[in-house]
Amino acid sequence: MSDCCFEACQSQRLPDPEDETFLAVRNLSVHYGAKVALESVDIDIQRGRVTALIGPSGCGKTSFLFTLNRLSDLIPGCGVGGRVRFEGTEIYSDGVDIGLLRANIGMVFQKPNLFPVSIRKNLYLPLREHGCPVNQLDRRSEEVLREVGLWSEVSDRLDASAHSLSGGQQQRLCIARALTLRPKLLLMDEPCSSLDPMATDVIERLILKMRGEYSIVIVTHNLAQAQRIADDVAVFWCHDESGCVIESGHAEAVFRAPKQPDTVAYLAGQRG
């Protein structure tokens, strides 16, 4: 923990995580080759709550999200420093079962990324991979489709190509696909940015419905959306081209009485 970064980023320092903390991030940094994308992030994510990551583009929100399920491993040249502790397990320690980690931490991407197979097969693939018994596949698929409100829309064409669905339906199917594994935490990277307002509304209501049962971390550029759905927020900001968290806490508190001048300006629409 260097002083200079502390100065530059004005980020909050948190004490060592306690064992019961759901997800604790300490002094996290991300770099792509020589370029530092994110530095000294400290944050606690609470169980059963919706945490929104807000802030201008290019401040490391997506990079941050990708570190939580170690999808950053896939990006060439991407290095991660610091600690991420999920339900008492250091996810960057040796011997972590990454398949299991990603089954516990689901992810929904900016654009729907369904596989070029049928609706049914999109759901079967993760279920089969993680050992769902064959006679449970249909039941579990129906369950998650009902959870995301797609069942009535697709129950009669489960064998149609997943790409035949509308954008909003595709994104809900992506959420359903992530839910097949009953993840404890769901990461969402601007899940509504490619959708129209109607489809966005459906997804937002879905997120509110899932709150409590699932823990959700969602990246959004839409402040109004963050206000509608978030219990907690973390504000990402750029200093010297590298991102950091300048403020985090209960959504209401941050939106009503932001402490950092940059947050004040950002929320007022003057900066970022």
Binding site: G99, A103, N113, F115, L181
Partner: peptide, 23 residues
Amino acid sequence: AHLQGAAALGLSRWTTLRGVVLP
């Protein structure tokens, strides 16, 4: 995006090949 999607679901390389890449 499809490869990332597969990885994010914890799919093995073999499943990714068979279920995502090949089709």
